[in-house]
Amino acid sequence: MREESDKELLDRIAKMLDGGLKTMTEPFPEDNFQFDVIVRELAHIKKDDVEKKLVVSGYLNHPIEEMRCMECMYYLNHRKWCNLPEIDLPAEPDWWCRLWRI
């Protein structure tokens, strides 16, 4: 079976978010200890369970204030990809999640 391309996966995620998928945008981790709790939760999710990863990480299809994927440390601008190993999913530069880091 053909694997889903990055672009196809990005489109699928965009559709899920446009369709009103509710994600856990709060609490935003105030420090790295709270950050690690979320990362540990993500680490237990199956790699192909995209929806659950979106929910736990708090994916949004818009920025929050001045925070957006484009400036995030884990974001690969050219690939349009979140490189945090526990997320490892595509994202648009103007999106956001609660694991935003610079």
Binding site: E30, D31, N32, F35, R101, I102
Partner: peptide, 14 residues
Amino acid sequence: PGTVFKTQTVMGVP
């Protein structure tokens, strides 16, 4: 614990 090999952050900023 949690301070070694881990960048300490406040609201996403080191």
